[in-house]
Design a protein around this nucleic acid. Structure first.
Length: 911
RNA sequence: GGGGGAUUAGCUCAGUUGGUUAGAGCGCUACCUUGACAUGGUAGAGGUCCCGAGUUCGAAUCUCGGAUCUCCUACCA
């Protein structure tokens, strides 16, 4: 069904057409197939209300590349899609909508609020999934999972109950990171440290027993003075030793507080005196615990102060209270000085305000299987790519702290805990933990809180299959697809998600065991390879954000460059593991490459029927040594090399190298050299090697399309079909990608031997052609195609090589005549391994220009020769370097010397 | 404070275990609309491989020190 191709590639209709065909024909469906190896990737679920951004494009393109590659490697590939309910992010958005309507979630109540949240999620959910379709993502959409799906919620609650029963989940009262905007606790990971230009206030507190004697204290938070319950100094601080145990005046509300000694105080920081506010600072909280100090909580959940702060402060917002407190210190004559001070302040990721350390009762998870999680990475069961992220992961695990998993939010999986109405919640007898709740619900009330989003997505690799259900389907699929093959994600969520998934899987994917053996670890890990890519930044290195306006809409980019162009472009510029500086122009290479691919196929179609392309077998049948010229042999050799390179790149997870290899091969080798060299044969049906050249082209294009398909699925499918590489109704993915070694064997079986030595000969011919072009360009006759060239061959075999390729050389160098001669005088020339090529200038040569050019070349070679000579005269080099290196150096020197002599002779010929 | 990473052409980056004259894309210059492609072709200019020391026959590559940038992490108020 070869069809006419347009002059330039237009992705618009092609991409949507094939995506629909793939979906309609179940191309993305991942099923248990006995006898086939599984290949599984779980999508990092985007926020349900999110929009596709460049980070998604990179992340999902990479996943699609691996999935599509697995398909044409004959594996049963499953890419499981879904979305995350993003508890706090979504709730913030819904609350903003409510605010616009002049209402608040507390006004409408939990039930109404959840209705709104569901509507929000239904309205916006799925948008991003459709955007992924536009990108060409080959997910098994039938399996799309949402973390708020009833089944998934149940999985989350089952996990909670199991972990509670096993003693990993507990309730505790301690300082948490409190977001005054969302009014919920946050995990440490959700707090972002930002450097702040603030003030350091130095003030003085008066000693109770010695009126008139003051201690100077520095603080950045004078608004918490009212919560001070002590002043602390270092136990070995000579300055204050006599004061420990004495009392000091807290200025307001005026009260006597003790001076304590604690090692947490830094001797040489500030004045060495620290005000201790246990309710509002983690370090102070710890000191307070050690000295049994009262905890005075002066703040309301919304960040305003309460009556404990004193009448005048009650109800005042914290930053306003800071100003008031400073003013008051000043009035009391207690303010010593204010200086500029830069420090790090923790911000709420979603609320974007400073978090407030706040004492509250929360649910915590003591991480299970921490040791096993480390071991899994240390013993190579799980591999990070690039490897250096292992350190980051292990460092976090080595310093791990219990995870606050409860959130004072409504949108999320509700914590499956009930308390007996009116009874003491501390008494275990009054706590009920189960998925289905107590049998007498009227006597109980459920915990108000929901779980941290990540405390649901950490089950993603197995809850998506229906865990902990034990039905036949779930069991069969988990047996087959789990552990999944790989995880593709950015380094920013190694702690949030990756590490937690690993621990959850180790704990839950098997029976309850205290410790695990290496064998058990291997069966329980959620994935084997973790591919960590960089973050996309703008050309100035800044993070992409809506407020900066530096975040392009991927759909616009698809409009401009095509999904395939975008995919190729983004992978091409993504170095392994490092951040990516994104600039739109850098995508042009992808679009241009699509066009090149398109035109190469178009040219092929212009030169003959593609009827014999139906299978690789048929194409191989059309090949024979007799029909393959040197260039044909060379391009087949390069094809085998490229297949091999790509195999290695997939093993090493080097995707930008992959695009470089494919680009260089198809454009640089096939289009620029093979097609150009073979044009004479291709264009003339009478040429005895016409059919052979077509067959070589067909094989190279076919394998190239297979190699490129994972990166550029749409255009390769279109060309696959139009070049007649498959039967009607079949798809590219129904074919199998052959391994380099197997193709070599298959060629040999057909009597086609790919000769390495001959391929190297062609490299020399290419070099000579390039030299000829250079000389022509130097004499401004580059565009003339009727010049005469002389060549003095280096030796007999070179002369034979030249004879064999004379027509090609003529064609590619643009010469009407090429004469092989023993000696040439007074003509500008250029030296190559095969021989020296001269431009015959009937008219006078610009002698000076030619001298200058050759002189320059000579200088370059002199350096190389000097270096080579030095090396070879060096006894230790001869004795210590490997023989082949020495031999190589000798050969190189000889060649360079010959070239040098030849140029010298040339130079001399100009008098 | 601790730990990564980076530093190679004007820009963005490759450079696989140390071994021919350090590469690519973009940009730039010149020439070319030659029967796939101007989203193209050909040729070219452009580099003290951040600095210093060391190991080695040999270092962009390994070791140590330094500089600059960057990210993560941390309870110096």
């Amino acid at each position: 069904m070869a069809t006419e191709l347009n002059q330039s590639y237009d992705p618009k209709n092609v991409e949507s057409k094939w995506y629909k065909a793939w979906e309609d024909n179940g191309c993305f469906e991942g099923e248990v197939v006995e006898g086939k190896d599984p290949f599984t990737i779980m999508i990092p679920p985007p926020n349900v209300t999110g929009m596709l951004h460049m980070g998604h494009v990179l992340d999902n393109t990479l996943q699609d590349i691996f999935i599509r590659r697995a398909r044409i490697e004959g594996k049963s590939a499953l890419w499981h899609p879904g979305t995350d309910h993003a508890s706090i992010a979504t709730q913030v958005k819904v609350e903003q909508a409510l605010k616009k309507e002049g209402t608040h979630r507390r006004d409408i109540g939990r039930e109404k609020f959840l209705e709104r949240a569901w509507k929000w999620s239904d309205d916006h959910g799925g948008i991003i999934l459709n955007q992924l379709r536009t990108l060409g993502a080959s997910c098994d959409w039938r399996r799309t999972t949402f973390t708020m799906d009833p089944d998934y919620v149940r999985s989350v609650q089952e996990a909670f109950v199991k972990l509670y029963d096993r003693g990993f989940i507990y309730r505790g009262k301690r300082l948490v990171n409190w977001c005054p905007v969302s009014q919920t606790a946050l995990s440490n990971e959700e707090v972002i440290m930002k450097p702040q230009n603030g003030k350091m206030y130095k003030m003085r507190y008066e000693l109770v027993d010695e009126p008139g004697r003051f201690l100077e204290i520095s603080t950045t938070r004078p608004e918490t003075i009212m919560g001070d319950s002590a002043v602390a100094v270092h136990p070995e601080d000579e300055r204050y030793k006599d004061l420990v145990g004495k009392k000091i005046w807290r200025p307001f509300p005026k009260a006597e507080i003790p001076i304590v000694a604690d090692r947490a105080v830094e001797l040489d920081f500030g004045t060495g005196v620290l005000k201790v506010t246990p309710a509002h600072d983690q370090a102070d909280f710890d000191i307070g615990k050690r000295h049994n100090l009262p905890v005075i909580d002066i703040m309301n959940p919304d960040g305003t102060l309460n009556e404990l702060a004193g009448e005048e402060f009650a109800g005042v917002e914290r930053f306003k209270a800071r100003k008031m407190a400073v003013k008051k210190l000043e009035e009391l004559g207690l303010l010593v000085e204010i200086e500029d001070y830069e420090n790090n302040v923790g911000y709420s990721e979603r609320g974007d305000v400073p978090i407030e350390p706040r004492l509250s009762e929360q649910w915590y998870l003591k991480y299970p299987k921490v040791e096993e999680a480390k071991r899994a990475v240390e013993n190579g069961t799980i591999k990070f790519h690039p490897k250096r992220w292992e350190k980051v992961y292990l460092h976090w695990l080595n310093n791990i702290q219990d995870w606050c998993i409860s959130r004072q939010l409504w949108w999320g999986q509700r914590i499956p805990v009930w308390y007996k109405k009116g009874e003491d919640r501390k008494d275990p007898a009054n706590i009920h933990v189960s998925v289905d709740g107590p049998s007498d619900p009227e006597n109980w009330e459920q915990d108000d809180d929901v779980l941290d989003t990540w405390a649901s997505s950490y089950l993603w690799p197995f809850a998506t299959f229906g865990w902990p259900n034990t039905d036949e389907k779930t069991k069969r699929e988990l047996d087959y697809f789990f552990p999944t093959s790989m995880l593709v994600t950015g380094f920013d969520i190694i702690f949030f998600w990756v590490a937690r998934m690993i621990m959850a899987s180790l704990e839950l994917m098997g029976e309850d065991k205290e410790t695990l053996t290496d064998e058990e670890i291997e069966k329980r890990v959620p994935f084997k390879d973790i591919f960590i890519h960089g973050l996309i930044r703008d050309p100035k290195g800044r993070k992409m954000s809506k407020s900066l306006g530096n975040s392009p809409d991927p759909l616009d980019l698809i409009e401009k460059f095509g999904a395939d162009g975008l995919r190729f472009g983004i992978v091409n510029i993504a170095p392994s593991g490092a951040d990516i500086l994104f600039a739109e122009e850098r995508l042009e290479i992808g679009r241009n490459f699509c066009n090149k691919l398109w035109n190469a196929c178009r040219f092929r179609q212009m030169n003959g029927t593609t009827d014999g392309n139906r299978s690789q077998e048929l194409i191989l049948d059309r090949l024979s040594n007799a029909q393959i010229d040197g260039y044909g042999n060379w391009i087949l050799y390069r094809l085998l090399e490229t297949l091999k390179d790509v195999e290695v790149q997939f093993e090493k997870f080097e995707m930008h190298q992959l695009t470089h290899s494919l680009y260089n091969f198809f454009w640089g080798d096939f289009c620029d050299w093979y097609v150009e060299a073979a044009k004479a044969m291709l264009l003339s049906k009478d040429d005895p090697r016409h059919d052979g050249a077509l067959a070589v082209s067909d094989l190279v294009i076919r394998e190239s399309l297979l190699l490129l398909h994972p990166v550029m699925p749409h255009i390769t499918e279109e060309l696959w079909q139009s070049m007649g590489y498959c039967e009607e109704g079949q798809f590219l993915q129904n074919s199998t990608l052959i391994k380099s070694a197997d193709l070599n064997a298959a060629l040999a079986a057909k009597g086609v031997t790919v000769d390495v030595a001959a391929a190297l000969r062609i490299e020399q011919v290419k070099e000579l052609i390039t030299q000829a072009r250079a000389v022509k360009a130097e004499y401004n006759v580059a565009s003339k195609r009727d010049v005469t060239l002389f060549v003095t061959p280096t030796d007999e075999s070179c002369a034979a090589s030249l004879e064999d390729n004379l027509d090609t050389i003529k064609r590619l160098a643009g010469a009407a005549v090429i004469e092989l001669r023993d000696n040439v005088e007074n003509a500008p020339g250029s030296v190559s391994a095969l021989g020296t090529v001269y431009l015959d200038l009937a008219s006078a040569v610009d002698v000076d220009a030619e001298r200058e050019r050759l002189g320059k070349e000579l200088q370059k070679l002199e350096k190389v020769i000097a270096a080579g000579n030095g090396k070879l005269k060096n006894e230790t080099f001869i004795s210590k370097a490997p023989p082949q290196v020495v031999e190589g150096a000798r050969k190189q020197l000889a060649e360079t010397q010959a070239k040098y002599d030849e140029i010298k002779r040339l130079l001399a010929s100009f008098g």
